[in-house]
Design a protein around this nucleic acid. Structure first.
Lengths: 150, 150
DNA sequence: TATTGTTATACTCTATAACTATA
DNA sequence: TATAGTTATAGAGTATAACAATA
């Protein structure tokens, strides 16, 4: 039975900060081996969940909408995403992951050895418990569910 | 008993990506209200655990050592950190959080409402369980323990 | 010889403000 | 009037390569 008897909110925040640091570093290094910046990698991660309008992407990534233009420009130039006009609103452009983009983001995740090795120490019950707790803490947050393209 | 019956490694990676995305966005917004960038905030977070040499900081933050000069320059100019010469190695500079720096990073954490509200949904047992699992997955990673200044 | 911190450089990320096309 | 996407701009982050000081 895993457990930390003195886990106040402050301790949990610190533990989340350490965990995030490890995960983010792991992700950044893995993305770099594919020639991608962390921001480009995060963008592909979001698009892996499905197409998204430019503005919705910016919201999910917690950055200003004007940033997305350059990021998507570079990803599109490398053939990892493409812009498609929305059928219902001519102002909107939906960004779609290409097959090559899907291949790259999957390759990046497969290279996150620190995180994968850490998860490998958990048995099936522990994984289910961790998943349930993370869902309860974070899945209710607005940005957790990427806004659907309209 | 919280749990997700279908929590394979791939599902957990996706859930971690969503959770840490929410946490990171929450942190970035909170840091901005204190006039700090995400990188500056992350640097203060690491220093909150104790002093660190420039090089060790870069390792913990998974970035090149040359980046730290500018980041620490700006934080030092605002009085949030200071550089101190190492007593044992004249090449090394230890970076120390000032009282004001400590005040600011604590204020940022107190403003992370998405994360704090999510954690508030957990009872004491759940918090202990989550803490134990996160420790097992991430605390063994090299970057989790900030290299001590020498 | 190797390491620490810094500098110079080029590119990327980021927010702000202004613009256009559309709603 | 409001919203989606873009552009221009300035400041910050980032990796690479080179350097002086020290080990």
């Amino acid at each position: 039975m895993p457990g930390n008897p003195r886990a106040g909110t402050a301790q949990l925040m610190e533990l989340l900060s350490v965990s995030l640091g490890v995960y983010y570093g792991d992700f950044t290094v893995a993305a770099a081996t594919e020639g991608l910046t962390a921001s480009q990698g995060k963008t592909l991660t979001v698009l892996r969940r499905g197409p998204s309008a430019m503005r919705a992407l910016a919201t999910t990534l917690s950055c200003d909408a004007s940033n997305m233009t350059g990021i998507i420009d570079r990803l599109e130039k490398r053939g990892l995403v493409r812009r498609e006009p929305s059928p219902t609103d001519r102002r909107v452009k939906n960004v779609v992951l290409t097959d090559e983009g899907e291949r790259i983001i999957d390759a990046i995740r497969a290279k996150m050895h620190l995180t994968l090795d850490g998860l490998a120490t958990l048995d099936e019950d522990d994984r289910a418990t961790l998943a349930g707790l993370l869902e309860r803490v974070f899945a209710a947050a607005p940005a957790a569910i990427p806004p659907t393209s309209r």
